[in-house]
Design a protein around this nucleic acid. Structure first.
Lengths: 336, 336
DNA sequence: CTGAAAGCGCTTACAG
DNA sequence: CTGAAAGCGCTTACAG
């Protein structure tokens, strides 16, 4: 049996489609008696109006595009959870895409959103779009889609686009200061490619803290990987094997931390006795197990909530100036 | 500037809407010259046809509903990843919902899917629907929506509905046998409420293996929690504090394992020296760190892939008999 | 090979 | 308060 339509309901209620529509939307004037009768029949038949037809007719849509690079990374899982918490309440539909950090998939996701005429996009870029051409291209695509966009987590400095970011600079800066305060001077850092904005930002937090304390930075202690565990693991092995190695290491995201801890445990060493670790992001498993690493906490669920709120706000006020929400991080210190 | 329509393209190309439509869909006959011209103009204008209008017109949809209870649990994150891998290739749109294990949200997700006239649903139930009334209700809802459904992971035995499940029974059964084979006789198990089908299934794997080996099962070693870490933690504390405690413990999902390991590490004890642990599901973090627990591996990404394949197949062959895919698990043994 | 027209299931001025 | 009609942006028989 195919789906009922508004026409079926109208017929059965002995009214016109228009009236049924008014009842459904609670719009216009409908006499109480008519309304009741129509509602009754709708209920009886478990009728629910087609979102597709409604969207076409109204020229709007209830869909929000959501795209993240690694949907199986709990960090993004939590963001998504924060988002759904609010979309659910607002009757918004989430179209989810996963890009595996590939530009091509990023592109396809945006095409999909365009075809579906989404009302807004929650976007964590797959790559950093530092390449001039890629960047121009991306900006053009957003121009074409022409709906509100909120960038999450990875700030690629798009003109006139809202965003929600963590204050990673501050997090790393404070973590570094905390280590220095605890007497560490030989501090290493495992970061990603320092050409990339995200990595640069974090690196600056480190450098600033070190310079302010008048502590020289040793080139050999600065490792530039790619934010993934494997790379971090290999870099960490080298670092840990150095003759004169750091007494503390800062890792710049949760994957990096894991790579480091793996290299460490392979040597039969552990934190914080053999070396101190200060990581970015909570790692739930380790925390549960009482692992003594220190971390900079970032509330991903909150990021999700803020992002969708920003988007909804922008949908309501398309003309308002660009807004960026920067979420503070928090140091969780176990032992330095 | 609002979106272009097929009419704009038609006008500019000097043809009718029908022709443009044929070009877009590669359907019907269009002269090569016309086709080329139309394509040219489409490209120039970055035109992409409205999925909404197309869906309404064709009476179909490109959307698949995806609903899981805990989107920030990496297990479901991986399932989702497996799903997107295939939907991306088939130009299917994923509408994601998160239910937090709440029946009410489960219900709302299905309503949403109905309104959006999705073509199919990938469904992990929020609750087990053992309650007769709830169950009837659910079946009725699916009847109303009347599109293919594939249940994932949690088998609630819906009549005539496809599903993809792991062979948890076999996993636990083999794990238990492995423990017995290594000489353990005092084996505990941390499971969920044994009234629930999921838990019962796992429990049976345990019981069967023990009985076949002629080993008596001690009531006190059987803990029934709820598949969450906190509950497991509390139960584990009691278990570990017993005078005559087990030498090995089986934990029935990743959360349960964490709760157990937490209770253990709090006592200053660790696996496998103080007690052996055999868990269901890999825990990436622990593995990376070389933690010596044993686990039953379940390939969640594969579950995602199989589920969407089953759904696509069912969409193509609506009349075919019910199919269930049961994925084998695999023992990963470190030290028993 | 191409176009005019009807239709998908709604919404919304407009008229009464 | 209610309905007839036009329109949203497509697709698809049908006729030529």
């Amino acid at each position: 049996m195919s789906n009922l339509t508004i026409m079926d309901i109208a017929r059965e209620a002995g009214v016109s489609k228009a009236t049924v529509s008014r009842v459904i939307n609670n719009s216009g004037a409908v006499s109480p008696r008519t309304k009741e009768r129509v509602l009754e029949i709708i209920k009886e038949n478990k009728f629910s109006p087609s979102a597709t037809a409604r969207n076409l007719s109204k020229g709007t849509s209830s869909a929000i595009g959501f795209v993240v690079p690694e949907i199986d990374n709990p960090f993004f899982g939590e963001i998504l959870r924060g988002v759904t918490e609010i979309t659910d309440k607002n009757n918004l539909t989430l179209i989810c895409c996963n890009t595996d950090d590939e530009r091509e998939k990023d592109r396809r996701a945006l095409d999909l959103f365009k075809e579906n005429r989404v009302r807004g996009i929650l976007y964590t870029p797959a790559v950093d779009y530092t390449d001039k051409k890629d960047r121009k291209n991306l900006i053009r695509i957003f121009d074409e889609i022409n709906v509100p966009v909120v960038v999450m987590d990875r700030n690629i400095n798009l003109p006139n686009v809202d965003g929600v970011y963590f204050n990673d600079y501050q997090g790393i800066y404070e973590a570094t200061k905390a280590l220095i305060g605890a007497g560490h001077t030989k501090i290493g850092i495992i970061n990603a490619d320092l050409e990339k904005p995200l990595a640069r930002d974090r690196q600056k937090g480190f450098t600033d803290a070190m310079e302010q304390a008048g502590i020289p930075i040793r080139e050999g202690y600065i490792l530039a990987g790619d934010f993934h565990a494997t790379k971090s693991y290999h870099l960490s092995r080298e670092l840990l094997a150095m003759e004169d190695r750091p007494t503390a290491v800062i890792t710049c995201n949760n994957r990096t931390t894991l790579g480091f801890l793996k290299a460490l445990s392979e040597r039969g060493e552990s934190v914080p006795d053999d070396i101190v670790c200060f990581g970015l992001d909570r790692i739930e498993t380790l925390e549960l197990l009482g692992n003594n690493y220190n971390f900079i906490e970032r509330d991903a669920m909150k990021m999700g909530r803020e992002a969708i709120k920003l988007l909804i706000n922008r949908m309501a006020f398309p003309g308002r100036p660009k807004m960026e929400v920067v979420l503070d991080t928090k140091l969780i210190i176990n032992k330095l």
